[in-house]
Design a protein around this nucleic acid. Structure first.
Length: 779
DNA sequence: TTAGGGTTAG
């Protein structure tokens, strides 16, 4: 019998004959072989593989049994290719492999995901008529599944004359590992129906992660009931089954059941603990997650694993508790697991999210092994801390180090373009995802929609949206929010109706996007309508964020008293952000009395962040009460709140130019200031009057006028006028809200310089053209 | 059996 020709390195041994086992009288040589075999197996049993190999090499002519013993030993531990090498030399020595050889060499191929070699072995087994043997077939299924070849795996399974639970489980594990939910369920039913076999612990442990992934709680509960009936929770696999059940409940966000399983388990391991801690993190129960982590440590360090530490570090990042995170870093170092890649990446993420750039970089440089996730953690940390330019540098470094960006990397990077409002960077990133074949991904498209909207190209956002293969709730919300910041409330409403027509159920975020879109467009009645519909028709209870939107809608629309009444009637106690929305509108509408009342409320609550201090101070300044304004700023300083300096920037030919108020650091500053002085003369002729109520300092009128003239957004616009051709639209981005005087002045600028100007501020877009602004002065 | 970086609003 000739073996078929194979294509790999095994090809050189193609002409191997399979002989029947030697028979005849037991000779002295046979007895010797028995002794060799005994010695060989003893060393293997003790795990002394190097000595076992020396023994093997001394055997005068090793037989299949000797080969099988060593191949089997090699197939269980690295280096796995030793098993394949030995199999190759077995063929070379013309010792015929048998049904005990093939499963183990196939296991080595499977572990190494070496499909070509595995196929060759499949050929050998078929030539020997052993490919339908139960153990050989099961090993073949494992191999094909591991290499994601479901067709060949199913063929092998179909050709088996007899199948045991292990064979059924091998196929099921394959479906489960590749997320093939329907196949897995059908296979399980078939196993019990046609196969007349009862699922065992391995079946359950394979299936549960798949149910968890699909949040199939009711099927998971049925499986739990089966486990109890089959007493699978009482045998030695109890830890595996119990942990898999617990994890399924946790992933289905059913923490009560997860805890119940956890506390009923007589024995737990490190996986059990980390699964439950991870469940609490998933459900955003950060304090409880950390408390459980501490309980685990109290039981002993033996339960500490990179996985549980990763969850604990997510808690630290989420609670912005760097001190706790640093203590965990020390604990990791002490336990010797700080070199673990998962643990290292979690630490990186914790430091990056906390904005501790030096610590992040130091750790990153220390890491001996870095992967895509390490770079992703660093990159997203920069983006989340508003350091978009640094994020681009990480991306460049990543490419220089040949680390391939994936979906998550690009989803992190694209918002960096939005933050900079750098359209050219955004377009490059769009090109980059197309080249990498990632443009089909829903999450990538969502990030692109957001990026184009924030870079002023709502038309390109819509193009991406229209071409998407599959949309999720985030896609719809992002597009509605995009229309909102462009003041296109009608379009936002139309899209919302289209969303419902296509069968998408809006969520709480949808209504935040929709109501704020109405607010930016002055659609007060519509906004109120959708707020009522949210609870009455969609059964979504309003959160604090919805109340903020409503107060913003009413107050910005000029209905200050109604907004005040609305706050009074809220079922929740209004927080600083709600009052802040009203205070902002008091400033716009110059209602000093109500402003004072609101500011007293804010003082009682204690201002959070910096916005309200600034607003309050501005209100006092606008009323000419400069001493009180200064006092607010002193309180702000004493309490340690920093005010972000107003900053505006403009992209010219792919380079960003940033300005702060009164900035003279730009190389073209003299020209910019000259241009602004000229503009002031021209716009005054058209009737512009500086609104000095926006000047915070107690200065003379003329000085106030100059202070306004050199606001950051005006400097950036003047630089744009000098740098761009007359037909080009000037696009400026500001980190804070555009000031009221600038808003008026820019309208005049479009007339005297005959330019279209777009300003994106912290709140929305302002499209200035022919002396008007798209916001209709609802700014 | 667990797990690290990710998109919307405020």
């Amino acid at each position: 019998m000739r073996l078929p020709r194979v294509h790999l390195r095994l090809a050189s041994t193609a002409a191997v004959r399979l002989h029947p086992p030697p028979s005849g009288a037991i000779s002295h040589e046979v007895r010797d072989k028995k002794e060799w075999q005994l010695e060989l197996e003893q060393h293997i049993a003790r795990g002394q593989l190097a000595i076992a190999r020396q023994v093997f090499d001394r055997i005068p002519s090793p037989d299949a049994r000797a080969y099988n013993a060593l191949i089997r030993a090699y197939s269980w531990r690295a280096p796995f290719h030793a098993a394949i090498d030995l199999y190759r030399s077995m063929l070379h020595s013309r010792v015929p492999p048998n049904k005990y050889t093939f499963p183990f060499v196939l296991k080595a191929c499977s572990t190494l995901a070496d499909l070509r070699c595995g196929r060759a072995v499949h050929g050998h087994a078929a030539a020997a008529g052993l490919h339908t043997d139960m153990f050989v077939s099961t090993a073949l299924i494992d191999l094909y599944i591991r290499c994601a070849r479901f067709g060949p795996a199913a063929n092998v399974f179909a050709q088996m004359p007899m199948r045991d639970v292990v064979a059924w489980n091998a196929m099921l594990a394959g479906y489960a590992q590749h997320g093939m939910y329907q196949h897995a369920i059908a296979h399980l039913l078939d196993m019990q129906g046609h196969g007349c076999l009862r699922p065992n612990a391995s079946t359950i442990v394979s299936l549960l992660p798949l149910l968890a992934q699909h949040e199939a709680l009711s099927q998971g509960t049925s499986i739990h009931a089966y486990c109890l009936r089959a007493c699978l929770d009482q045998k030695e696999e109890q830890v595996l089954v119990g942990t898999a059940l617990l994890d399924m409940y946790a992933k289905c966000k059913h923490l009560v059941y997860a805890c119940r399983v956890f506390y009923a388990m007589p024995v737990r391991n490190e996986v059990t603990w980390s699964a439950l801690i991870g469940g609490f993190v998933l459900c955003d129960k950060m304090v409880q997650a950390f408390s459980l982590f501490k309980d685990m440590l109290a039981q002993g360090l033996c339960f500490l694993s990179p996985t549980s530490v990763a969850s604990a570090l997510r808690v630290c990042a989420s609670l912005s508790d760097v001190r706790m995170g640093t203590q965990l870093h020390a604990l990791l170092a002490k336990s010797g697991i700080h070199t673990d890649l998962t643990a290292g990446n979690s630490l990186l993420s914790m430091y990056a999210k906390a904005g501790l750039i030096n610590e992040t970089m130091a750790l990153f440089d220390e890491m001996a092994v870095k992967d895509t996730v390490s770079y992703g953690a660093l990159l997203s940390g920069y983006v989340q801390n508003g350091k978009a330019e640094e994020a681009f540098l990480v991306f460049k470094k990543m490419q220089a180090c040949n680390v391939e960006p994936d979906v998550a990397t690009m989803v992190s990077l694209i918002p960096a373009c939005s933050h900079l409002a750098a359209l050219q960077h955004g377009r490059c990133s769009h090109g980059s995802v197309i080249i990498r074949g990632l443009a089909i991904e829903t999450s990538i498209c969502n990030a692109l929609i957001d990026m184009y909207a924030k870079c002023g190209r709502i038309d390109l956002s819509r193009q991406v949206f229209d071409k998407m293969a599959a949309r999720d709730i985030v896609s719809w919300n992002t597009m509605i929010a995009g229309y909102g910041i462009h003041g296109l409330g009608k379009e936002a409403t139309t899209l919302f109706l289209g969303m419902k027509n296509q069968g998408f159920a809006p969520d709480d975020v949808t209504f935040i996007c929709l109501i704020s879109a109405c607010s930016h467009s002055g659609l007060v009645t519509e906004g109120k309508h959708w707020f009522n519909m949210m609870t009455q028709k969609h059964g979504i209870p309003p959160r604090m964020e919805h109340y903020i939107c409503m107060v913003d809608l009413l107050a910005r629309g000029g209905f200050l008293d109604e907004a005040y009444q609305f706050i009074q009637s809220m079922p929740l106690k209004a927080d600083v952000r709600v009052w802040g929305a009203l205070l902002g509108a008091c400033r716009i509408h110059k209602n000093i009395d109500l402003g004072k009342q609101v500011s007293r409320m804010i003082q009682k609550l204690g201002p959070e962040g910096t916005g309200n201090f600034v607003l309050l101070s501005n209100i006092f300044s606008a009323a000419g009460r400069f001493n009180e304004a200064a006092e607010v700023r002193v309180i702000q300083k004493v309490k340690g709140f920093k005010k972000s300096p107003g900053c505006s920037w403009i992209e010219i030919n792919g380079s960003l130019h940033a300005f702060v108020g009164g900035d003279q650091s730009h190389p073209r500053s003299p020209d910019i200031y000259q241009e602004l002085d000229n503009i002031l003369i021209d716009i005054k002729k058209l009737g512009y009057q500086a609104d000095t109520s926006f000047v915070l300092q107690d200065l003379e009128e003329e000085e106030k006028e100059k202070a306004l003239l050199y606001h950051s957004e005006k400097l950036a616009i003047a630089f744009g006028i000098l740098s761009l051709g007359e037909d080009k639209t000037i696009f400026v981005t500001k980190n804070l809200r555009v000031c009221g005087d600038c808003h008026t002045a820019i309208k005049y600028m479009t007339l005297v310089r005959k330019r279209a100007i777009i300003v994106r501020d912290a709140n929305r877009f302002h499209h200035f053209k022919n002396g008007k602004c798209s916001c209709g002065d609802f700014w």
